[in-house]
Design a protein around this nucleic acid. Structure first.
Lengths: 329, 329
DNA sequence: ACAGCATATGTTAACGATAACATAAACAGG
DNA sequence: CCTGTTTATGTTATCGTTAACATATGCTGT
């Protein structure tokens, strides 16, 4: 900036001002400065700016996996909402591992983000402590814990699956299975299984048709493998709820390979309303948790908090929608 | 750090050293410092560190879409390879828009990354200029231009599709169609179409069975719509190559809905070897461009360049693999 | 026992921007 | 025409860390 200042015949401070849209610099001066900057091939240094102004314009975001259309949609909603304000997302993925999440949070906080968004309501004790003491807005998503660290925007995974079970029972089914991961690494997946078991028990039904499909996240292939095992061991099963649409689709293909009619002999449902659920033949019954909205509302919340506007509620509930399609009757 | 130094009875410089793994600080001093830091709830400030040391440990990465399993795999490969060195990815997506890419590159360069990775070999003139003058390693991926800005790791999209056409022709087919986007927004998709046309013409075949499926990226649904139009207007088509597995799967579902036998009456092939290609019934013939490898080798290249190790080649070619599956004969 | 070197720590200044305050010039209203 | 205010610009110090250099202490080999 000093070089530009010299070339344009002004002080460095005026150069600094010329780069800010709102500050008071005469048009002639600004033009001269921008021209000089261009001639010199100057590139603004955000690092220095951040240090002095104590504003990085980073929003830290951690998601379990970068390879997941649902989380991707949430990130899209978020970055769309933040872009206008010049806030940049610092994205990291945890691989569904809380220890990795802790490491990531620690790294991110060193970068002094304006706010931090994490996925889920469960974290290591140290991660919780770091978030609590971070002194910036903390938003949890994709879950709806009773006592969020700061704010939470999400839904109860257990309740969502419960609604699906209720629907199946109301339609007269009783022998319902659940395909999910075989650990609690994916806490949202684990919550869905908990919801399944609770709902089945509430109806006085057998809640033990649980197929462990592998280490989360469950792929299409693992869904297919789990369906194979289900058909082999519990052939009288009437319906299967899968932890995600991807595993549900895998399960569906296994039925196709074995000539098992869906929904004629077996119903299949997924979770997430991925594109494949709507276009598969038959189309898959699923639950839409509105991932884009989660991101968009998170962005709004962050802007409100940064501006100190009113006092937003600590818990914002998103209502997932049950989508009944051809795969279930 | 000054507070910690006071509490631990050392100088701030020693505190700074205590946070670096390799620097010479006695064990006793380091313990005292880390304890003091912990007691004070200190969080290291990377911004200040970056400014002074002129090292941000950021690697800027732009991809067309965050919601794409192939690019996600490349990012995974990249971040896996960079993690050990403490390099953090600054990820942004362009929405397949070169103007947006330009904006993103400009923003990213202000953050002073150690290197920048972009997708594709085509950029706006200003983006090119910025990259050329950035003074850091520039790596283009997912393409193989003759004259990369800095380095390139990728493959020729046109050649890959050409190989597939050759295979179909060798199998005796001649009426082959291509389903792709209806603009050149997705330059890789456009290159694939170019490869299709060139290959068909090289065989003396009609290269006009081109179905425009919508604005890239083409979804499963758009693939289905395009297949519908193809079946309506060119019912004697023997095979369809789709710009991606997702559109190919959509096309397959349309055939299923219409009772068109695949591969009996029509062959379908995709691109990308997404998981769905392998598990769909019938499994889809496709091309695997090894997205993970692209990322992993990009990471290796970056480390080599940052360390000034030897002089890596400017162009590194990845050889995509043609995977023949049930959907084509 | 002492030069020579490695190890542990301290001092000073600087990275590149801008917040905070100061000032000169232009402008408005009575 | 003068005071009060707005607009355009300048000056100074600083954000929190670390590079570069300096120094003290301990250790090695002869």
């Amino acid at each position: 900036m000093a070089d530009i200042a010299r070339l344009a015949g002004v002080s460095p401070m005026t150069v600094s001002r010329a780069f800010k849209a709102d500050s008071s610099v005469s048009d002639a001066t600004r033009d001269a400065i921008l021209k000089a900057a261009d001639d010199l091939g100057y590139v603004f240094d955000s690092t220095a700016s951040s240090l002095r102004s104590q504003r990085t314009d980073f929003i830290a975001v951690t998601i379990p996996s970068i390879n997941n259309a649902n989380f991707a949609e949430t990130v899209r909603g978020l970055s769309e909402g933040l872009k206008a304000r010049g806030l940049q997302i610092l994205l990291g993925y945890t691989d569904y591992d809380m220890a990795e999440e802790e490491r990531l949070i620690e790294q991110f906080l060193r970068r002094r983000p304006e706010a931090i968004v994490v996925t889920g309501g469960r974290h290591t004790p140290r991660a919780r402590r770091m978030l609590q003491n971070a002194g910036i807005p903390v938003i949890e998503t994709w879950d709806l814990p009773e006592d969020p660290i700061g704010h939470v925007i999400g839904f109860s995974n257990a309740d969502a699956v419960r609604g699906m079970v209720d629907h199946f029972v109301a339609r007269g089914l009783s022998r319902i299975a659940f395909i999910g991961g075989d650990t609690t690494r994916d806490t949202r997946g684990a919550d869905r299984r908990v919801g399944f078991i609770a709902a089945m028990q509430a109806h006085g039904l057998d809640a033990t048709r649980l197929i462990a499909a592998g280490i989360p996240p469950i792929s299409m292939r693992e869904g297919a493998g789990a369906m194979g095992r289900l058909l082999d061991t519990l052939p009288d099963t009437q319906a299967v709820i899968c932890v995600s649409d991807l595993s549900a689709f895998g399960a569906l293909t296994e039925c196709q390979r074995r000539g098992v009619d869906v929904p004629g002999r077996l119903w299949i449902a997924g979770f997430g309303d991925y594109e494949i659920a709507g276009i598969a033949v038959p189309a898959l019954t699923t639950i839409n948790p509105f991932p884009r909205d989660i991101g968009a509302r998170t962005a709004d919340l962050i802007l409100d908090l940064l501006d100190g506007r009113d006092d937003p509620p600590a818990r914002i509930a998103i209502s997932p929608a049950l989508l009944i399609r051809q795969s279930t009757g």
